[in-house]
Structure formats: structure tokens, C-alpha cells
């Protein structure tokens, strides 16, 4: 069972992160992938603030856990989760995001922004790169894990399953996939055209250890992280997190038109009010 105090701490961080996301989205005149940002918020807090061994003061430490955001369009979520961990300065993100010369762009770039492990943005490519990192760690006898967060939509890409096949065949127990199973693609819902179910069985069929969880319940997230087996496990692990695109903002949830967008002053106020109300329902961190 997850430690209730730890869960409260993480819930408060997720609340702070949602406020920052909405603030940025309201401030920036261009579009932000706010729907997917909100569906991975709790998971990223779980990873950066509980599950992964990382040190923002020593971003090159060989012992650090590696993280690849395969769904690169959720970059803003990663920036903010990392900011709350002490990597970056939120004011700088507010000031520069998406602008000429900024390190903080719509998709993460490791060349522009040290601390990001891998540049991503073209969907379906992250897992294969994570497999490369996992092979390297195994041969060097390093004990860290490699985490790779994917959107469920990008797992339509063949390369994901090529990589899943390699990881299962080579028994890469140091590799952990996280799928943001929000059941929405950019322009349709899962099942409208493309059917992703039976989803967990697909991963099991590729010889992965599957852990299913509620990607918005911090107890469930902490429990799932605790269940990740040691790196000597003969299977890679995937956390399949049931999530909702736009989670926490009532007018965005289950809406196709909130894959990405920008917020008016009124939208911003309403979203922030929803976030306050949801946090109060959780006990406001108390």
C-alpha cells in the first residue's frame, strides 16, 4: 500500500503542475497540446517525483534513470514536472516557450535543452531508442532503469511493435514502458476507426510484464511503480495507465477539439476553478 503522506505530496505536486500548465496555455498565444498534457500530468509527477532516480543537480550522473518522452507533443508536461523537481525555471518557460531561441519548444530537443535525454516528436520512435539505452546499460552492468512514455495512439505505429518484439526477445528487464491509455487519437476516439483493444493482451503477447493502473489516482500510480520488478526480471514491464485526455478541466475531458489549443481569459479562469475544486475534493493536500 502506498504511504498516504507520500500520496498527498504527489497529489499536491500534480495540482501545482496542472495550474502551471493552464497558466502557460492561457499565456502563450500559440497552441499547446493541453489535452495530452493533462492526461500524463499525474503519471509524470509519479515518475519524476517518486518512481525515478534522478538528480537535477547532476543531470549526467551515469546512475540516473533514463526517461524518454516518446509522445513528444506532451513536452510542456515534462518541462513542468521537471521544473517542479528543480531542473528548470518556470518563469523562463513562461517567458520563452515556443519563441525564437528558446530551449523550450513544442517538442523536446536534447540539443537545445540539457536534461532532456532524447529529442522526440515523431511518434512511435521513442521505444526503439529506449531499447538501445537498455541494451547499453545491460552490457555496461549499470543498474538504472530506462523509462519510455508513449501515447496509446502512437502505438498504431509499426516501429513500436518492432521495438516491443526486440525488448521481449532480449528479455530487457531494465526497460519500463508507460502507456498513456487515454483512448483518444488526435481526430478520433479509439474504436471509431481504429480499435486498440485488447490492449494489455497485445503487450503480453510480445512477452512483456503488464501492470494496469488508474493514471489519475496517485495511490494506483505509486502502487504500480512499487510493483515494477527488479531489472533482473526476464521481461520488460509496461504500465498501462487508464487516463482521460484533458483530465481535470471539465470542458476538455473526452473532447476531440482539445487535443491542442489555446485558452481565452475565460477558459483559463474556468479551468483553474475546476482544478481548485478537484484538489479540494482530494482534501486539498491535507
Amino acid at each position: 500500500m502506498a504511504d498516504p503522506k507520500e500520496v498527498k505530496r504527489l497529489q499536491t505536486l500534480a495540482y501545482e503542475m496542472r495550474k502551471k500548465l493552464i497558466t502557460l496555455c492561457g499565456h502563450y498565444e500559440g497552441i499547446v497540446h493541453i489535452g495530452g498534457d493533462l492526461s500524463v500530468t499525474d503519471l509524470l509527477i509519479g515518475l519524476y517525483h517518486y518512481g525515478m532516480k534522478v538528480d537535477p543537480k547532476n543531470i549526467k550522473a551515469p546512475t540516473r534513470d533514463r526517461f524518454i518522452l516518446s509522445k513528444g507533443h506532451a513536452a510542456v508536461s515534462m518541462y513542468i514536472a521537471m521544473t517542479l523537481r528543480g531542473y528548470f525555471d518556470f518563469d523562463e518557460i513562461m517567458r520563452t516557450y515556443g519563441r525564437l531561441g528558446s530551449a523550450f519548444g513544442e517538442h523536446p530537443c536534447k540539443i537545445q535543452l540539457p536534461g532532456v535525454e532524447c529529442s522526440t516528436g515523431s511518434l512511435g520512435q521513442g521505444l526503439a531508442i529506449a531499447v538501445g539505452l537498455a541494451f547499453s546499460a545491460r552490457v555496461k552492468k549499470e543498474t538504472h532503469r530506462v523509462f519510455c512514455m508513449m501515447g496509446d495512439g502512437e502505438t498504431c505505429e509499426g516501429e513500436v511493435w518492432e521495438a516491443a518484439n526486440t525488448a521481449g526477445s532480449y528479455k530487457l528487464g531494465n526497460l519500463v514502458g508507460i502507456v498513456d491509455r487515454n483512448k483518444q487519437l488526435m481526430t478520433s476516439f479509439d474504436g471509431d476507426y481504429i480499435n486498440l483493444e485488447p490492449y494489455a493482451d497485445r503487450w503480453r503477447a510480445f512477452n512483456w510484464n503488464v501492470i494496469e493502473l488508474d493514471g489519475h489516482d496517485m495511490n494506483s500510480i505509486v502502487d504500480a511503480i512499487d510493483k515494477i520488478p527488479p531489472i533482473t526480471n526476464p521481461k520488460p514491464t509496461v504500465l498501462i495507465a487508464q487516463t482521460t485526455k484533458g483530465r481535470g478541466v471539465s470542458y476538455m475531458e473526452h473532447q476531440i477539439n482539445w487535443h491542442a489549443g489555446s485558452l481565452s481569459k475565460e477558459d483559463t479562469e474556468k479551468a483553474l476553478a475546476d482544478i481548485e475544486a478537484n484538489y479540494a475534493k482530494l482534501g486539498g493536500g491535507k
Binding site: E117, C118, Q125, L127, A128, I129, A130, V131, G132, L133, A134, F135, S136, A137, K140, G158, E159, E162, A163, N165, T166
Partner: peptide, 18 residues
């Protein structure tokens, strides 16, 4: 990796990153 060149290129990138 078997017949899976896209995956192979990704793995190469991952190895090189390390």
C-alpha cells in the same frame, strides 16, 4: 532484431546516446 530496420535505427540511436 529480425527484419525491422526502423527499430534498428532507433536502437542504434539509443546505443549512441550512451
Amino acid at each position: 532484431v529480425g527484419i525491422a530496420e526502423q527499430n534498428l535505427a532507433g536502437i542504434a540511436a539509443g546505443l549512441a546516446l550512451e
